[in-house]
Design a protein around this nucleic acid. Structure first.
Lengths: 149, 149
DNA sequence: GAATATGGTCAACCAGGTTGTCTACTAGGA
DNA sequence: TCCTAGTAGACAACCTGGTTGACCATATTC
């Protein structure tokens, strides 16, 4: 059997491709994965561009480019930080939240189909296993998301 | 809990980072993941540059660049195809096979540590689950490896 | 034998990162 | 209170690793 990282990479690619296809089918603008991860992150907590960079696992400059795009396209906006005059909070617009909502439905679909194919208990074990491993390796602080290639 | 692809991406990144660190510790030349995947592929079957591109999920031109690098560094060599005068088989040199051997030991270590952290049965379920899913989605032909970002 | 498809190479280009630098601001001591 | 070290964000230059497109030589199909 293939070693774990190969399986992870292939599955990631396979699911991502399916997701992307369906986005297009619906006619939803197919943003890149990184954009989606930003939405998901912002839905959970207030964050600056630097926070986003750390979450994605890229430099703050790269994160700034992504944020600038999302801003331009109307998915996020930047508002002044209440106490720190240097900083800005990046927040989702309604358009951004809507996009995330649709994306979540799609992901749930894909996950359900995965459950049909390999068993719901297996999917649950996979998710719990990976989560536990990440917890074990990284403790509190979340690891980067960007795959190294 | 995070959706599946996020977990996949984070775990992939986390394992990859650890692997890379250890490669450096041993003093083994830290090639990129793509190179390792090429070794692994060539160890299983005879392949041309086009085959490699398909396996990685990149164009043949991109694959050609990688093969050229590996050739230059002494990990692979290109030999004429027995029947097709256009084609060349890319094959591992001893150096390439040795590298793969060391890498496999490292991966096994990481997998064992994962098993200690989350349970051997869980790791087995994860591997079987992902393998089954890939089989379900792609059937016979293997999916691309390169993560879309 | 002609038309079409495929492996490999070359060249131009591009996307999406990185490093380095700068300014404005913050925070933590002497 | 002032001085110093650190941080958020922006700008510019650059680099890596991919893509597209064109081409030749050879294979394959009819």
């Amino acid at each position: 059997m293939e070693p774990v990282p190969v399986l992870l990479a292939m599955t990631y690619r396979a699911m991502g491709d399916q997701f992307h296809d369906r986005l297009r089918q619906i006619g939803l603008e197919p943003l890149r994965p990184a954009h989606g991860y930003v939405f998901r992150f912002l839905a959970q907590r207030r964050a600056t561009t630097v926070d986003i960079g750390a979450h994605l696992g890229v430099t703050k400059q790269a994160a700034a480019k992504i944020v600038a795009e999302l801003d331009e396209w109307g998915y996020v906006l930047r508002e002044p930080h209440p106490t720190d005059k240097r900083a800005q909070y990046v927040t989702l617009t309604t358009k951004g939240r809507d996009y995330l909502k649709f994306a979540d439905v799609l992901w749930a679909d894909l996950e359900n189909e995965m459950a049909e194919a390999v068993g719901a208990d297996t999917v649950a074990t996979v998710k719990a296993g990976l989560t536990a491993y990440l917890q074990h390796v990284h403790g509190e602080d979340q690891p980067g998301l960007r795959p190294v290639w």
